[in-house]
Design a binder for these strands. Structure first.
Length: 488
DNA sequence: TGAAATGTTGGGGCG
DNA sequence: ACGCCCCAACATTTC
């Protein structure tokens, strides 16, 4: 048996890689990467954004560890649907194996490839812990409430142990020729710069073991703290598959001593499962709100406000810190993402899809399922989303989850000398305090672009009115369309 | 995985 | 000692 193992951007690893494991124990293996510019998860071309650097690191790591085991990652440029049938014939391969993806852009092409290649094309569901679509309510429908989904998940069968990496890989078949590596995208992309947050399977495994040893114990308390390294920082590794979700699940469940950090982290992985499952069952969430009553919500398009939010100059310190961290690091802790999203959608009344696209572009971990689920949740229009009347207060959130203001000081250096009491509300600081801290509001740091109290009332009024309209417009026609609403 | 408004309670100061 | 008020702390309701 001769198998092409087709790596894609959600499985850049050798360990716990079921398609590779199966192939390596059943004959010849050809590791393949298809370089399709349209399917490349990176922004820009020549620039080296953190996201692009992370992605390149991960690919190069994959290339190196395949070489180390006696084989080679073959890189072929072109479109998936053209390249794959061509190389199957040229290399006389018996089959192609890959990991399934819930991303509809990829899923669509997979359907097409299944038509072309038939049973020679094998898809594995290691992207998630449970195959998407496998959990259903008693009436046979997808879950729309997280707690019910999580209950069903826990009741489902145990998660198996992760597979080790194959110790050696069979050498490439000698009866056919493979393209050389000299024009490899991987070499073109390298700039030799050491990344602040390196990608690759090795770095991922180190982050996982560091988290299990040092972060897990306090995870449930600290994961919301923006000023501490309290989150796992594993999101980008899960996104590119340099860490499998099963490896993460397994590692935290084996950890000693046990703490409620394990349950809290498992819960986050279940949110991921929920997001992937939702995107699988309902790809339309990428275009429109999950909850139909949110369709046509009167979002505004104000480029001045948008620019202030993107660049981190809204005048709300935590919101600005999150915006700047996103652009500089490609990472934002979840709590700060929620605060930033609340500000954009509820204070500025800008369409969540605009923020969603911006985050998808810049986050190292930007994947469509999680990112869309998070933004829809924050906007209040998603699966099990917060009710529309839950509006974050950026000052209270800042004081609660960045109590000394160190997160703000790190990312908004013009406020570095502000005392904790005023760092989240500089506009209330006495002139003497501002003077000592070297802050001139409106010059060195902006005044708030909207008054939060006013903005909150404005949003609530708009939402109330829209919901009323939607109800009267849809209730006679299509009572079923409201069934996805959260029960009381 | 909210926040603000409103209601309730209880302790302490005070006449 | 007692009632009264204030208000902090906490609970409940409302958006």
């Amino acid at each position: 048996m001769r198998t092409i193992v087709w790596f894609r951007d959600n499985d850049l690893r050798l360990s716990d890689h079921e398609p590779l494991w199966d192939a390596a124990h059943n004959g010849e293996v050809i590791p393949l990467w298809i370089l399709d510019p349209e399917m490349t998860p990176s922004n820009g071309g020549a620039d080296m954004s953190p996201r692009r650097q992370f992605y390149i690191d991960s690919l190069r790591g994959l290339e190196a560890s395949i070489a180390q085991r006696g084989s080679r990652l073959i890189v072929v440029p072109g479109k998936w649907v053209e390249v794959l049938p061509r190389v199957v014939a040229a290399w006389r391969a018996d089959r192609v194996v890959a990991h399934r993806s819930v991303d509809p852009r990829i899923h669509e092409q997979d359907e097409h490839l299944t038509n072309v290649l038939g049973s020679a094309f094998g898809l594995y569901s290691g992207e998630t812990l449970l195959a998407p679509g496998s959990l259903r309510t008693s009436s046979g429908r997808p879950y729309s409430v997280f707690t019910q989904f999580a209950r069903a998940f826990r009741a489902a069968s145990d998660i198996g142990a992760p597979l080790p990496p194959p110790e050696v890989l069979p050498a490439l078949p000698s009866d056919v020729s493979f393209p050389g590596t000299e024009t490899s995208f991987l070499e073109l992309a390298g700039n030799g710069r050491k990344s602040a947050f390196p990608g690759g399977e090795k770095a991922a495994q180190e982050r996982l073991s560091h988290f299990v040893r040092h972060g897990l114990l306090t995870y449930s308390d600290d994961r919301n703290r923006m000023d501490l390294p309290g989150t796992s920082r594993l999101s980008a590794d899960l996104r590119f598959g340099t860490l499998s979700v099963r490896q993460a699940w397994s590692a935290v469940h084996k950890a000693v001593p046990r703490s409620d950090g394990t349950a809290a982290f498992a819960n986050e992985l279940m949110w991921r499962e929920f997001a992937y499952s939702t995107l699988w069952d309902c790809p339309a969430v990428l275009q429109s709100p999950f909850r139909p009553e949110f369709a046509g919500f009167p979002w505004r398009s104000d480029d001045v406000l948008w620019q202030a939010w993107v660049s981190g100059s809204t005048g709300y310190p935590v919101v600005d810190a999150a915006a700047r961290q996103l652009l500089q690091e490609g990472f934002v802790p979840n709590r700060a993402r929620m605060i930033a999203a609340s500000c954009l959608t509820k204070d500025l009344l800008i369409d969540y899809r605009r923020g969603e696209a911006h985050y998808l572009e810049h986050l190292l971990d930007g994947d469509r399922a999680n990112n869309n689920a998070g933004w829809q949740w924050s906007a209040g229009c998603g699966c099990d989303g917060q009710p529309y009347f839950r509006v974050f207060n950026p000052v209270i959130q800042g004081e609660r989850f960045d109590p000394r203001g160190n997160y703000v000081r790190r990312w908004v250096p013009e406020l570095a000398a502000m005392p904790a009491k005023y760092v989240h509300r500089p506009w209330e600081a006495p002139a003497a305090v501002l003077g000592t801290a070297g802050v001139r509001l409106g010059e060195t740091y902006p005044l708030p672009i909207v008054d939060h109290r006013f903005a909150r009332e404005r949003f609530l009024a708009a939402a109330r009115q829209h919901m009323r309209q939607q109800r009267s417009a849809t209730s006679d026609v299509e009572p079923d369309s409201l069934l996805t609403r959260r029960p009381a």
